[in-house]
Design a binder for these strands. Structure first.
Lengths: 202, 202
DNA sequence: TGTACATCAGTGAACGCGCGTTCACTGATGTAC
DNA sequence: TGTACATCAGTGAACGCGCGTTCACTGATGTAC
């Protein structure tokens, strides 16, 4: 829509991504339309194909960037396990929900892309890098325990991930719009849950 | 597609639901098309409107029936808390995953309907009835604890629900198709997680 | 500093497609007398 | 038992719509000489 001064856009690729994020935020990765994105940026419907193979490729790029941001934020929250392993896991969990809350469009593209992650190896890799941060955190928790009573840290990481994702997708407002009401902050619910879990694990 | 003998279908409503479930199983609640459902049942594109207000009403009906089946199965698994509260919760969790696995189409319609649950009061009520079973189970767990150390049972129910839903949506094959590979059965992962959690809670 | 030319990011028109929904209608069913 | 009629589940054609993608093209950019 927005009229452009020059024939060349300058940074169409980034602009398309930004417009797509707006659209996904409003109606989810499925309510997302390449044509409307192009219109929103003030460019013909064919222009996006200079930058993305097809519709899915744009979603995949967004999901990938999302996982990268996500991994960074988790990693920062983790803070090398300071002040202690359990607190660091809690910080990751807060960061997890914070991301889902602040970036519902990225989150939706990451977890409901509408096609298998395997379709895009770079995307899959980015997703695994993000999970890697949770593994780090779980490792630290497990290492803080007495030898012989250590559960597999992969399992702990998967439990933490499941709980985070469960709370986020059930209770954080997102574009899919089927979120439940809750008599408390999702952050508090998750914090309590992980505390109980980690107390028993270590 | 399938040719009919008589002018009247007989049980078009049920047939539409069954055909829609097939379609949702294959491509999710968003890849679902009223026109294709009608074709699949061998009926004109206008016929479904005799039974459902619009496309969403059909999805809502499916989600509602899903929650009802779901509640029944959870309730049966719960088995009035036998043999003991913790084991009964574990049974519910297994039933939760079993449902997601056996009925991916219902599950998808229930948790990614594409419109807010609040749009259909009957649907919302059915969803709350299903959650009610988890509350029952959580109540029993909490009641088995010593007075004074009892956490709010609503919170426990929400934790159990989050973990079940997290595991199901991350690791159980569904139509959205972004499920992760896992080096163990989701059932085992969830069972271990809940055991650790419940051990600490009680 | 100026010019020829390769590169490439955009255009716009077209293709084929299928959707959701409405409408006036018609064929079958069953009920009241 | 037979018939008139109301009911209602289907039809089929049409409406308006917008999508994703391809294609031959053209305008702007920047680089080599």
């Amino acid at each position: 829509m927005a009229a452009r001064a020059s024939y060349h856009h300058g940074n169409l690729r980034e602009a398309l991504i930004a417009a797509a994020l707006d659209m996904i935020r409003a109606s989810g990765p499925n309510g997302f339309t390449l044509a409307e994105v192009a219109r929103g940026v003030g460019v013909s419907g064919a222009a996006p194909y200079r930058h993305f193979r097809d519709r899915n490729a744009l979603i995949a790029e967004i999901a990938k960037q999302g996982f990268e941001k996500f991994a960074e934020e988790l990693f920062a929250a983790w803070d090398e396990g300071r002040p202690n392993a359990v607190a660091a896991v809690e910080a990751c969990a807060r960061a997890y929900l914070g991301f889902a809350r602040r970036e519902p469009a990225f989150y939706a593209a990451m977890f409901e892309p509408g096609f298998p992650l395997e379709d895009d190896p770079a995307l899959l890799a980015a997703s695994e890098r993000a999970f890697g941060v949770l593994r780090l955190a779980a490792d630290a928790v497990v290492c803080a325990m007495q030898r012989g009573k250590r559960p597999p840290s992969l399992m702990v990481a998967l439990h933490v991930w499941s709980m985070c994702h469960g709370v986020a997708s059930l209770f954080i407002e997102g574009p899919s719009g089927s979120r439940r009401k809750l008599p408390m902050a999702p952050e508090d619910l998750l914090e309590a849950g992980l505390l109980i879990y980690l107390q028993s694990v270590g």
